[in-house]
Design a protein around this nucleic acid. Structure first.
Lengths: 138, 138
DNA sequence: GGTCATGTGGGGAGAAGTGGGGGAAAGTGT
DNA sequence: ACACTTTCCCCCACTTCTCCCCACATGACC
């Protein structure tokens, strides 16, 4: 998944999913917290892969995953290609009006637009890009 | 991939891809940022190799790749052999009207023509060529 | 000079994206 | 149990933009 898309939450808390990401996420997908101040969306398939990994862990470690599952929400697209984001998730990621949707390889991310803009400017500097590319021998 | 090709963005932000590069990039390829002030295009195959490497890393490290994926765009050729470059990518690389397309071994690069001309003149000096060749024992 | 492949530009149909109305379903209080 | 509010979901109307198409210019090759 790739790309940066600008959308807005409407008065009812609905978020539009760009057509390109829709194809890759599938008709129903999972949204949950991230380690950053944003939300992550995983296709049903990716979610399964993730869950399998969790299941393979000893129970003591599985408990640490509790918040991830507690906040997770299975989202389904309406006829217009939108999802309804539960309020607790919106609050958690500080999503109010302007939301930037990012494709990020195997998942999508939802950011408050201002926050993402600030992060992008600091992360997408030539030095960082250079460092990343070097690391991957790209 | 080799060569230097002169093209222009039309009013709709479309860029013509030279026939020689088209063959090597394939019908759909990925365009993203570069560490220089230009855009890079990778064939779907190259992109997959890169993504596989990223997926093999722990999630905490994968985050560093966010800007690369956020700016990336899967571009498909139209019947005339052109692609539509998203505005944010064009802005990022300062592409307005005249664009120089470069073949650069395993990828292609898109430069603002003036900028490339300046860079080429400074880099393609006999001294630089000599230095490069020496380094590779060429 | 003719013909084919390559490159350039623009019109228009249809998909993508946006917003809002209204009714069903669920939750709340008396 | 019943009215009332809130949330959710389906539907419709509208705007914007992408993509497909055609028409033409240019240059290479025969």
């Amino acid at each position: 998944m790739t790309g940066e898309y600008q959308h807005s939450l409407d008065a009812k808390g609905r978020l539009f999913i760009p057509a390109r990401l829709r194809d890759e996420l599938g008709p129903a997908f999972y949204v949950t917290l991230s380690m950053d101040h944003c939300l992550c969306a995983y296709s049903a398939e990716q979610w399964q892969i993730f869950s399998d990994k969790v299941n393979a862990m000893p129970y003591v470690r599985q408990r640490a995953m509790r918040p991830l599952y507690a906040f997770a929400c299975k989202c389904e697209l309406d006829a217009q290609g939108r999802i309804l984001l539960p309020q607790n998730l919106r609050e958690r990621a500080g999503l109010v009006k302007n939301v930037t949707v990012l494709g990020s390889n195997n998942h999508a991310e939802f950011w408050d637009s201002d926050e993402w803009a600030a992060l992008r400017d600091s992360e997408a500097s030539p030095e960082n890009i250079a460092a990343v590319m070097q690391e991957f021998d790209f």
